[in-house]
Lab assay of single mutants.
Amino acid sequence: QVNIAPGSLDKALNQYAAHSGFTLSVDASLTRGKQSNGLHGDYDVESGLQQLLDGSGLQVKPLGNNSWTLEP
């Protein structure tokens, strides 16, 4: 069960990665100043990332080996 409060997208993504045990490689300029609506409930990694990114204009991309990145 994930419980991440709304706020900074950077912070939300870092909390989610730490909670879910995956690696997220992101260029900080992509997420700077963006906000997230947070995340509450049970999600697989990709669904949770998509939910956190909702409205940010960013997309999640798998890199393999439980690693992910973001792209515009």
Rank of each mutant, 00 (worst) to 15 (best):
Q1E: 12
V2S: 05
N3L: 10
A5T: 08
A5Y: 08
P6E: 05
P6D: 04
G7K: 04
G7R: 00
G7S: 06
S8H: 06
S8P: 15
A12W: 04
A12N: 06
A12S: 06
A12D: 02
A12L: 09
L13V: 04
L13F: 00
N14V: 12
Q15K: 07
Y16P: 01
A18E: 11
A18V: 12
H19F: 13
S20I: 14
S20N: 10
S20V: 15
G21L: 06
G21V: 04
G21Y: 06
G21K: 07
F22V: 10
F22T: 05
F22H: 03
T23F: 12
S25P: 02
V26R: 03
D27W: 09
D27K: 07
D27A: 06
A28I: 10
A28P: 15
S29N: 13
L30P: 05
L30A: 06
T31E: 06
G33M: 04
G33C: 14
K34M: 08
K34V: 08
Q35F: 15
Q35T: 13
S36C: 11
S36E: 02
N37Q: 12
N37R: 11
G38K: 03
G38F: 01
G38W: 05
L39T: 03
L39F: 02
H40E: 10
H40K: 12
H40I: 13
G41Q: 02
D42K: 13
Y43T: 05
Y43P: 04
D44N: 07
D44F: 05
V45K: 03
E46L: 15
S47I: 08
G48C: 04
G48A: 07
G48W: 07
G48D: 02
L49R: 00
Q51H: 11
L52R: 00
L52M: 06
L53C: 08
D54E: 14
S56F: 06
S56P: 02
G57A: 04
G57V: 01
G57I: 02
Q59G: 08
Q59R: 13
V60Q: 07
P62G: 09
L63K: 08
L63G: 07
G64H: 05
G64D: 06
N65A: 09
W68S: 02
T69C: 10
E71N: 03
E71T: 11
P72L: 13
P72I: 12
P72V: 12
